[in-house]
Design a binder for these strands. Structure first.
Lengths: 96, 96
DNA sequence: TTGACAGGCAAGCGCAAGCTTGCATATGCT
DNA sequence: AGCATATGCAAGCTTGCGCTTGCCTGTCAA
């Protein structure tokens, strides 16, 4: 459960989540290309792979192997723990 | 906006938010005591103070000085950016 | 005014995290 | 079989972060 907050703490990993929401089921190479093009991220393939491991262990990305390819899907379910933990509205009640 | 994710990445800062939700308007000393008692956090006063700076710059904690005291309020509004950015439900549609 | 109390500032340490590099494994095509 | 493709593994480096330590500032009461 601690992995969730660590996972979304990195801007590159957040961009990966954005990309997967935009187009689900991408492979590692596909992700690397689109991250470079659309998000200006110049990290190596291994770096992205390590990010995906973190996202997977947090449950935010679901992986499915198919031959020599590895496809990734976004899963936003773990994020609900955040809005359930803290109220999203301002807690400070209006007082003079 | 990047500060939000960094702020909730640390378990001690998350405990501080929990504490402020539980009892709003605490001072620094009060927070240190309750964090030690209820959450088993043995960090020094300076450490907690630095955490509060991070939370404040993320907009998650609102500060109000009163004499020599400094009171802290929880503000959950910035958290809404998370649920607005990614869908909380599973994105992978059932297939096969 | 003196002293106690609440908090701030800044330098330094140790560890974890992100990234790179180099090599290894596995799948598919010809 | 042989080679290119797609990904995995592991060691090493560097930066950032959380924390401590020591001293300074500001506020209130006696």
């Amino acid at each position: 459960m601690d992995e969730l907050y660590r996972a979304i703490a990195d801007p590159t990993r957040r961009a990966i989540l954005d990309e997967l929401v935009d187009r689900d089921g991408q492979s590692l190479f596909e992700l690397c290309g689109r991250l470079t093009m659309k998000h200006g991220i110049g990290s190596s393939r291994q770096a992205i792979s390590q990010h995906l491991e973190v996202l997977e262990s947090a449950g935010l990305v679901i992986v499915e192997r198919e031959g020599r390819y590895k496809f990734h899907w976004f899963n936003g379910e773990p994020l609900s723990a955040i809005s359930e933990r803290w109220p999203a509205h301002a807690h400070r009640s209006a007082e003079s």
